[in-house]
């Protein structure tokens, strides 16, 4: 079987559209996930009364169910229950943010708890207040430790966005399916889709590597 470059060439505009949507959903997803994960991670790290049980439940539900099921639930079940309508794009971004948020919660909790207690003692012994110790010592150190696992999570989220084809969002993977149906050229289309994903994940990985190098990871 020969590889028809013209199929790839003709499909490019649509794929770029799909890739753009994938990028938008991913950015909203990891942005939202960072906010959710940071707040929830701090809640569990400092065992905030009552709230940390809620966070525990949230993380358990997300980690305990497949992300496809979460996407289906948010797109089809949630609007019925709450009597609202959600666009596919909104449902996808929300789903990815909720999903990434749960994993980032664990990343943040782990980072905060990994900071040597002795450093906290050293700050307190100087006469600093607890909030001062958190802001000048524990926070900056924990932040550095989240960078490598966060990079990992960002890449996972980007790739997870492919499954939103099940709720009909016209992101990259869904475009791939559509174009295959139109052209009947699975080899060319899926190769091109894979290369698109590779370029995006590789770019993300390089950005994280750069941040890592800019900061002294301790």
């Amino acid at each position: 079987m020969d590889f028809r470059w013209d199929v790839v060439w003709n499909a490019l505009p649509q794929m770029v559209d799909g890739a753009q949507l994938t990028a938008q959903i991913t950015l909203l997803g990891i942005g939202g996930g960072l906010i959710i994960g940071t707040l929830c991670g701090l809640v569990t790290a400092f065992r905030v009364p009552i709230l940390h049980w809620l966070v525990f439940a949230y993380v358990s539900v997300i980690r305990g169910t497949p992300i496809v099921v979460q996407a289906m639930f948010i797109y089809f079940a949630l609007p019925l229950a709450l009597d609202i309508t959600l666009s596919g794009f909104a449902a996808a971004s929300l789903c990815l943010a909720m999903n990434a948020g749960a994993y980032i919660t664990e990343i943040v909790r782990g980072a905060v708890q990994s900071i040597d207690k002795g450093l906290q003692d050293a700050g307190l012994a100087l006469g600093m207040s607890y909030p001062q110790v958190l802001l000048s010592i524990v926070g900056p150190l924990a932040f550095r430790r989240t960078i490598p696992p966060l990079g990992n999570q960002f890449i996972i989220s980007l790739k997870d966005s492919a499954l939103f084809l099940v709720i009909g969002v016209a992101e990259l993977a869904q475009k791939g399916e559509q174009l295959t149906a139109q052209t009947g050229r699975a080899l060319e289309i899926w190769t091109a889709v894979a290369v698109f994903y590779l370029i995006m994940t590789f770019t993300l990985a390089m950005i994280m590597r750069l941040i890592e190098r800019r900061m002294r990871i301790l």
């Binding site: 450093l119 003692d121 012994a125």
Partner: peptide, 21 residues
């Protein structure tokens, strides 16, 4: 406050506990 007592004392630890950043 606890802090007031800590300000009267300086402490040196077995493991140094310098802030690594």
């Amino acid at each position: 406050r606890k802090r007031d007592i800590r300000r009267e004392t300086g402490m040196v630890f077995q493991q140094f506990n310098l802030f690594p950043h």
